[in-house]
Write a protein that binds this DNA or RNA. Structure first.
Lengths: 215, 215
DNA sequence: TACTTGTCCTGTCATGCCGTCAGCTTACCG
DNA sequence: CGGTAAGCTGACGGCATGACAGGACAAGTA
């Protein structure tokens, strides 16, 4: 599709160029993890990458542009979240297992990419369509899959008709995302990591099936 | 307690000073609603308030400092969220009503303060203890109240013993907060405002009581 | 080896925001 | 009316931004 990586002024980036570009992205990612988004400056990223601000501007229009690039990378990896939902059974013992694995996978993914996800979340909440789309891309796979699960259960009369599958699925996914980005916050309520997971799985199971899980 | 409002250099602010200070806060609030947090500059806020940057720095150490002030204001108002939970019964028909009203109140509060809440969320997620505390202050009231409700139901053997009340309450509150800040996002999944609320209430009810509501 | 070509990087510069200070104006009080 | 403290701003050094032209470098060619 897009194929070649291009600089801001239109040239195609070669081997060396792509390396510097990637190094800048890596350094930006580190900076995002260690300092507030608002304080991440082009000059700092460039310095850390052992290059100059001018070089940065050759590959990205601004900090936000580079962040979008990072986010796209992550979104690709996020496709793997689907495997925790697609084609799973939500009845009986396997339903509980599905819930547990979904929670596990979600929290792990979020923890791994927390810095960039914070920024994506902010951008999306501020109404920036580019960030919004990326957030969708990550969450859609899971949400749609869960939506289908609920619809199926509805068809079998195992879930009430007045439940809106998309609303429930979306809310559960939002819950997982929110809990994941504030994982530390739960410790101050006296909730430990290990305790959090089964309780989240319980909520997911309850939400999808309307019933308590059989463990 | 604190009593007087003070300038950065230690003087007490009088009538006129407080007015300017408040005007700066108001303008900052507007700016936060209309442009990305990263792009909110002191000079813009000052200009909008019809004053100079130097004046801004007389009352606030920086943009973040002023935002904290706004957040504190909001947190005070957030205390009113308690009324949607404290002393409510979660059994039978009134349980459903409690869930519905909690969801309603929460969404309304979030929609009203979305701009500042975005920033507080970001700050908290980035590990800034000041923002973190404010977020706590708002959510704690609701979370603790819900936690108590679950504990009560557990004491009456209406909820399983292996449920961690704090974890469930925290997760539900996080869900409400997350859904509230991405309300627009749900529309692209084909979920309308009006449909969202009852489904959220359902999830809350399921989470607290473990049972489907009787409407 | 010398020359050419296109990629890659940086020095430099105009612009604009940051954050501080000295100093001016305004309000209040005896 | 003079003193005092509050209130505001112009001005300034410092730093980030973003654009450009030109130098460094690698690879291919003769």
């Amino acid at each position: 599709m897009t194929g070649q990586v291009r600089t801001v002024d239109g040239r195609v980036a070669g081997r060396r160029g792509q390396a510097t570009r990637q190094k800048l992205l890596d350094c930006l990612s580190e900076m995002l993890s260690s300092s507030p988004y608002r304080d991440v400056k082009v000059i700092d990223v460039a310095r850390r990458a052992g290059t100059s601000p001018a070089t940065f501007y050759q590959y990205f229009p601004d900090v936000e542009g580079a962040v979008l690039e990072l986010a796209e990378e992550m979104a690709k990896e996020g496709a793997s979240l689907t495997e925790f939902v697609a084609g799973r059974s939500w009845v009986g013992r396997s339903g509980w297992q599905a819930a547990e694995e979904l929670v596990d996978g979600f929290l792990a993914f979020w923890r791994k990419h927390d810095a960039i996800l914070r920024v994506v979340d902010l951008g999306a909440a501020e109404g920036d369509k580019r960030f919004y789309k990326i957030r969708m891309k990550i969450l859609n796979a899971v949400t749609n899959s869960l939506t289908d699960s609920v619809k199926e259960l509805q068809a079998k009369n195992k879930v009430d008709k007045d439940v809106n599958p998309a609303a429930v699925a979306g809310a559960l996914v939002a819950m997982l995302a929110a809990v994941a980005s504030h994982q530390k916050g739960f410790q101050s309520w006296g909730v430990k990591q290990a305790e959090l997971k089964p309780n989240l799985a319980l909520l997911v199971h309850l939400g999808i099936t309307g019933k308590k899980p059989t463990k």
